[in-house]
Design a protein around this nucleic acid. Sequence first.
DNA 1: GTGGTCTAGACCACA
DNA 2: GTGGTCTAGACCACA
Lengths: 124, 124, 124, 124
Amino acid sequence: MFALDLKSGVPICDQIVNGFIKMKALGLISGGEQMPSVRSLAVKFSINPNTVQKAYAILEANGIIYSVKGKGSFVSDDEDAHGAVINRAREEFCAAVKSARDMGLDSSHLCEIINSVYKEEKKC
Amino acid sequence: MFALDLKSGVPICDQIVNGFIKMKALGLISGGEQMPSVRSLAVKFSINPNTVQKAYAILEANGIIYSVKGKGSFVSDDEDAHGAVINRAREEFCAAVKSARDMGLDSSHLCEIINSVYKEEKKC
Amino acid sequence: MFALDLKSGVPICDQIVNGFIKMKALGLISGGEQMPSVRSLAVKFSINPNTVQKAYAILEANGIIYSVKGKGSFVSDDEDAHGAVINRAREEFCAAVKSARDMGLDSSHLCEIINSVYKEEKKC
Amino acid sequence: MFALDLKSGVPICDQIVNGFIKMKALGLISGGEQMPSVRSLAVKFSINPNTVQKAYAILEANGIIYSVKGKGSFVSDDEDAHGAVINRAREEFCAAVKSARDMGLDSSHLCEIINSVYKEEKKC
DNA sequence: GTGGTCTAGACCACA
DNA sequence: GTGGTCTAGACCACA
């Protein structure tokens, strides 16, 4: 399970949404699996249940999860939805590259960073 | 000179800060050069002088520019300050790579994106 | 809690910043503790919320506090940040000593002033 | 002769006033001696003559210098005036001590700083 | 004219 | 309710 960083400035709601999306991308949760209940997650993270509720609503709107009244929320099998999320990730990365380019970093340097991150060399 | 995108959702103030940082990184402005006055920039962009003022204050707090009362604001010669900004850009890119990795994108794919961005192929 | 002196000529914003820095230095507030809300402080001091907002932004930029949207502002645990503030205080005092020396005051006289201030003799 | 620091944030006018006061305190200029002309100083420092003029007016208002029409400005013999300036310096140092105390610095530490400054050990 | 501070008040995202 | 951003406009010190 992912952790929240209250001091990061990133809205808690977004952190929860991204947390579950990454868990699915990494195969830590998969289609059909039950999500933790809104209440239990709120207690676990010591945050407002409304915030968890909102995150689940966003995940559902994106087809990542679905809810069954009286039973709870479940991870969706919808591969299209997950693909759309991946596409968005690709676009976000693309924007990050442009930003880095505008700051004067050259492409070979960026590739080095990528390699070190994927090798878990913890150089950055 | 850079352009503002009022619809982007990115605070105008941040757009101005980043605009000048990029201009310095690209060598379009350099140490000692006078910045446009707060008022003139506000008129040029049709925004409130307070917003420009705030951006200039952030640039000054980061050592990118300095202001002389009654004379105006000037680009700083402080290379350390600019280096710190570049370092932050590097860290941001590093975070973007980690995020992409967590979303399941592989490193060769990321390198391809980098190459297409630097070749201005506008594929993304 | 500190008091504001609107007639002092010192910007209200700076007075608020220094007020909280001193409170932290004196142990009156400590890491994790919630700051008064921007609005409540504005009401308490009968000043504009924007002024408080600016002071909080400066404190946050210096790592003294951090803010969580929708929840409020909190005193940071970051001891490095607080240490940096103390260092700046030391440098300011150092500059004051140099200035006094240049004005012809001798060192023993300065030490006397220090002693009288710390003894609260109110001689100056 | 003293130097100006345009980036310091301290008004140029104040820097000139303090520069001459320190020169007198250090004995670098003495009663009856002629001050550099407003124009020459403005040229030397590459600043606006109005700024020099204002500084001289402040020095004259404090009895540090006096002007003779058609001849120029001269350093005053008025010891009372100089004494008043020294008193103000003492008060300023006193305020600096209070500020340092409020930041948690203890008196022995301040005395150490004083000693190192007067020994020109350049430790700070 | 130039930057710096402040008030008054609107509007937004978030919890 | 909480912080964040922005507009509109006043007033100040300084050059």
